[in-house]
Amino acid sequence: MQTEMSKSGSNPFNAISPTANTIINIGFMLYTIACLLPILLIVMVSLSNEQDVLTKGYSFIPNQIDFTAYKFLFTDWQQILRSYGVTIFVTIAGTILSLIIMALYAYPISRTDFPHRKFFTFFIFFTMLFNGGLVPWYLVYVNMLNLRDNIWALVLPLLVSAFFVLVIRTFFQSTIPVAILEAAKIDGASEMLIFFRIVTPLSLPVLATVALFSTVNYWNDWFLSLVFITDDKTLSIQYLMYKMLLNIQFLASNSNAASAIAAAGGQVSFPNETVRMAMAIMGIGPIVFAYPFFQKYFVKGLTVGAVKG
């Protein structure tokens, strides 16, 4: 199937009529615009003047371009920088660890000669069928592992996904010829060596896909912060955004912005609406820039991995 991808795709023997083609084109054009508009709106609001927003509402065409919101936002740059730091650390550490742990679990259960293969497959598969629910899960992390307000609480819970382990296993089973493994074993290679030198290089497509999914999951996570984090020192960028949507003064009350307002004795007011949207841009930005790279590999990875899984 992979080789098929490199072909131009549609069958060359008959093409759709020009009218149909035009209609499809226009349809997609409209849909694509509809997809981009919400993001454009946020960008425009973040660049608007607060007064204009208050009187006219959010609009695609600001009366004037105004960077006040970003100025206010950057008075509290330490918090934003720190949150980026948290998110980046969690994403990198999480993705690497999760990939290693999942691949190491998937390999033995892909080996038909491993006698406990069935048991361990079921051991992980069962977690897809049944779970203990939020409360006991939360208590394990907080009471047994003591991970409250700990950055590892943002890493650990997303480490292993049963589904991905099974996808990796299937990939190992279907693409790695048993003959190679046998040959290596006869040459006296240890299982670890076989795994790292032979299996992993051959499985790069599926591992890359899983890594990309992991990256997105970690980057976009806010739920773990919601339940585990109280401390401002460990706020991820997504959670910071969530807090700001609910409570824009979270920034105003903590930051130097507040003292600027206080110094002006309330004559200057905090640009709530535009700062909120500027914050959203801070959260969306990196994903959009990384997107072209991401998208390419995702499409590649998905088409080899997930369908088979």
Partner: peptide
Amino acid sequence: ATNQTMNYDAMKAGN
């Protein structure tokens, strides 16, 4: 109904 900003914090923001 949905805002969680404490009232004196809102006051502080000046609007």
